[in-house]
């Protein structure tokens, strides 16, 4: 059974309680389907595989929690059931062996954890002393290194380390803040966001961080870029039309189009492994749920 057919069977279908039609200038272009119905604040969704979605929920006022949802039967469970610290921004190696995420340590202090689920080994990159924290881990396609953003010297840079949390290498530096790094499936292109030219824009570079090239040019904030599985398109979030919506563009920065439209916020997009859909967090009537959207 294909993934798509699986999704249209079992309890998942029951969870798809709402189907809304997105209309742009009178033209219907895409429909989205609601995957969750608990309305809790959510962020950072990422597909572990076509049947499993991992994301972050505000489990308690003082805790962000990693949870895993089985998209076939609609069940959800915490990844670390007894964890009381906040955990966020999960990322998986392509084979699912490694998972990296942020974990709070103390006041305004956030470290990064890399779990080797096969060997049951955990590596930690502790934050620097004082207030400090990493951001946005992402694996290289071969699963051997983890990219992440980290601020020092007034600039937030992009580094990489191995899966033991060692061998730190600087990939991207420059004025302002860099964030949301990811590497194309062929390992040749680095995608990231940066404020080096003033506001948040989206950039690409060679995998070693050289040859930085700007893709977006807008005075709004273009953030959270993610490459499609085939490496041809980029989904990102922008407030260029007022509030935060989801946009698509080609990998060369051409053909920018908005794919969501709501008076409320749409954010945190992630590609489905089939490359034909994205999941995102949609705020509707003041509540937050995950929504699955066919991309045009």
């Amino acid at each position: 059974m294909t993934c798509s057919r699986s999704l249209h069977s079992h309890r998942f279908l029951e969870l798809v309680g709402v189907v809304s039609l997105l209309v742009f200038s009178g033209e219907a272009v895409a429909a989205d389907r609601v995957l969750t119905d608990d309305h809790r604040f959510k962020r950072d969704p990422v597909f572990l595989d076509a049947r499993t979605l991992v994301y972050v929920v505000q489990a308690r006022p003082e805790q962000l929690q990693l949870v895993k949802r089985n998209l076939v039967d609609g069940t959800e469970q915490p990844i670390h059931k007894d964890e009381t610290r906040s955990e966020l921004e999960p990322a998986f190696s392509r084979d699912g062996r490694f998972v990296a995420y942020l974990q709070s340590r103390s006041a305004a202090s956030v470290g990064m954890v890399i779990d080797d689920t096969r060997e049951d080994v955990q590596a930690e990159i502790p934050p620097a002393s004082g207030f400090s924290g990493m951001r946005s881990p992402a694996f290289t396609p071969d699963g051997r290194r983890v990219l992440y953003a980290f601020a020092e010297g007034g600039r937030q840079k992009i580094f990489s380390c191995n899966t033991a949390g060692k061998d730190r290498k600087l990939l991207v530096d420059g004025a302002g803040l860099c964030n949301w790094p990811s590497v194309s499936a062929d390992g040749r292109m680095l995608l990231f966001g940066s404020t080096r030219d003033g506001n948040y824009e989206i950039y690409v570079a060679a995998a070693d961080g050289s040859a930085v090239h700007r893709l977006t040019h807008h005075r709004g904030q273009d953030v959270r870029p993610r490459l499609s599985p085939d490496g041809k398109r980029i989904v990102f979030v922008s407030n260029r039309d007022g509030n935060r919506e989801i946009y698509l563009m080609n990998v060369d920065g051409s053909g920018i189009s908005r794919i969501t439209k709501s008076r409320e916020r749409d954010d945190f997009p992630a590609w489905h492994p089939d490359g034909k859909r994205i999941v995102f967090v949609g705020e509707r009537r003041g509540r937050f749920d995950l929504r699955l959207l066919d991309v045009p």
Partner: peptide, 28 residues
């Protein structure tokens, strides 16, 4: 303002006290 609007650091009343992640947290 809620004491733990962004629960990144439990047991800490973060509020608008953005010593880290200032720009991302204000934006997000």
């Amino acid at each position: 303002w809620s004491q733990t609007v962004e629960a990144i650091t439990p047991a800490f009343d973060f509020g608008w006290d953005t010593h880290i992640y200032n720009f991302e947290m204000l934006m997000d």
